[in-house]
């Protein structure tokens, strides 16, 4: 119900919503499903495109912070509408150590279900979701498209999940 409401409102799935499951390619011959990570927090990081022309871009930043995410046993998944081959080249070039998922066919279908597809641009928002071990969205955030949201919000969300469990 919450899902329907927030989708009607056009925004990202809100906290408390069940995170829609999906299966997407992470490499040309491997696929990843959200349910694979049940029992652990998942960070979904939607971003507009591979190869944005800045260093220290969002994915490079998260790559540096991976050890912090891992302290919470959290799995980071990057998602864009780029294809698996493009992701592969990008991940190799930037030496990324986490999966990039291809929301490629049908294009942006997962982004739409999370309320973060940008019609017209044909890309996703810069949107972050922290999903708990039970598959419930516990935090979501959409950054202005030109502004890399950083990682502070993700870490705060993971921290509050960990505090709850303790």
């Amino acid at each position: 119900m919450t899902e329907t409401m927030s989708r009607l409102a056009g925004g990202p799935l809100a906290s408390g919503t069940e995170a829609p499951d999906f299966t997407l390619h992470s490499t040309p011959d491997q696929a990843v499903s959200l349910r694979d990570f049940r029992g652990r927090p998942v960070i979904l990081a939607f971003y507009p495109a591979d190869w944005s022309p800045v260093c220290g871009d969002q994915m490079a930043l998260y790559n540096e912070i991976l050890p912090e995410f891992q302290r919470y046993r959290a799995e980071l998944l990057g998602i864009s509408v780029d294809g698996a081959w493009c992701h592969l080249a990008f991940a190799q070039h930037r030496r990324l150590h986490f999966p990039l998922l291809a929301d490629f066919e049908p294009k942006g279908a997962v982004a739409r279900r999370y309320g973060v597809y940008r019609d017209g641009d044909g890309t996703t928002e810069r949107a972050l979701f922290v999903i708990d071990g039970g598959g419930i969205v516990r935090w979501s955030y959409v950054s202005p498209i030109g502004v890399n949201p950083g990682a502070d919000g993700i870490l705060r969300a993971l921290e509050s999940l960990a505090t709850e469990r303790a």
Binding site: V54, C55, G56, D57, Q58, A60, L61, I65, E68, V147, N148, P149, G150, A151, D152, G153, L155
Partner: peptide, 9 residues
């Protein structure tokens, strides 16, 4: 920096 929202250099 991470905690303060540094998002690139």
């Amino acid at each position: 920096g991470v905690r303060s929202g540094v998002n690139g250099t």
